[in-house]
């Protein structure tokens, strides 16, 4: 009856094999694409780090952790705080201008006082503070996974500063 070699059953058999092979190839390809979206080497700064001893810091803004970790340590009014260096406007990196005693963003000109509160330019809210604490050896630990926002009244939170 079947002169042309391929039976109905065989046809479905081959069809199944074909689809399985196609799906497997596609799945493999997509998983490679998905893997490709993750970087091989991560250049992001560490999310928490040890920032020396509390008495390493003078009154004012300390920039030693800015380039490595994106954090300014500020000693003011007996408090040590870890200030984020990401502008709350659109995420540029402001500069500390020691002569004018302010942070100034190069992208749209937002300005912040030394304590991180915005006062000029388009920034909608103050810079964020990170969790800062002392470990058992009395060294300063900054944890960037926990943030404290001024406009939510979180700067009074005991984790947002160290008394010095």
């Amino acid at each position: 009856m079947h002169k042309h070699g391929l039976h109905r059953r065989a046809f479905f058999g081959w069809l199944t094999v074909g689809w399985v092979a196609f799906s497997a190839a596609l799945g493999g390809f997509l998983s490679l694409v998905f893997r490709y979206t993750y970087p091989n080497v991560n250049f992001d700064p560490e999310m928490d780090f040890i920032a020396g001893n509390p008495d390493d810091y003078d009154e004012g803004v300390d920039e030693r952790w800015k380039n490595g970790y994106g954090v300014w340590i500020i000693k003011q009014e007996g408090k040590l705080v870890a200030l984020s260096n990401i502008c709350t406007h659109l995420g540029c990196i402001p500069n500390w201008l020691p002569a004018e005693l302010k942070f100034k963003c190069p992208c749209h000109g937002s300005g912040y006082y030394m304590n991180g509160v915005n006062f000029e330019g388009p920034a909608p809210r103050p810079l964020e503070r990170y969790k800062i604490s002392l470990n058992s050896e009395g060294r300063v630990v900054v944890d960037k996974t926990k943030i404290f926002r001024y406009e939510k009244g979180q700067w009074d939170h005991p984790d947002s500063f160290i008394e010095v």
Partner: peptide
């Protein structure tokens, strides 16, 4: 990631938008 050029400017066709952001 922890440093931005100063001034940091968008491509020219977006500079109107960047000015608007002020």
């Amino acid at each position: 990631p922890t440093w931005a050029p100063n001034p940091a400017k968008a491509p020219w066709y977006f500079l109107g938008l960047q000015e608007m952001l002020v």
